[in-house]
Nucleic acid binder design. Structure first.
Length: 110
DNA sequence: TTAGTGACAGGCA
DNA sequence: CTGCCTGCCACTA
């Protein structure tokens, strides 16, 4: 039980992302029950990734680009996505039309 | 308690 | 296409 319920829903949503697919921050926030909580998703990832074994690399911004701040983070993320079959352009951009994870329903939060 | 911050999103020039 | 601004929410000092 990390912190607030929002944070737990965010973690749960990220764990639900299947291999070979990517998801945006806004979509994660929506799945967590907070359509406006995209920034919270970023904070959660940055803070909890190391402790909770999350597929952080499957999360990109709305433009489809890698938003990692760490200098070599993008290269690392690109490598991890490539292992799952997700092609990342040399400009660290993912084709959302093909790789975006689409859910049947907008909400499944408790 | 208030102010500052962040791996964002969306709208607009 | 790029860049700037605003709204958002939870966390930290």
């Amino acid at each position: 039980m990390p912190h607030s319920e929002f944070t737990e829903n965010i973690l749960n949503a990220i764990r639900s992302i299947p291999e070979g697919k990517v998801c945006t921050y806004g979509l994660i926030a929506r799945l967590a029950g907070n359509p406006r909580g995209a920034r919270q998703v970023s904070w959660t990832l940055h803070s909890m990734t190391m402790k909770y074994d999350l597929p952080w690399y499957r999360v990109v911004n709305s433009k489809g680009t890698l938003s990692v701040t760490e200098p070599d983070g993008k290269e690392y993320q690109k490598h991890l996505l490539g292992q799952e079959g997700v092609e990342v352009s040399d400009n660290y951009e993912v084709d959302l039309d093909n790789y975006l994870w689409k859910t049947n329903n907008n909400n499944y939060h408790l």
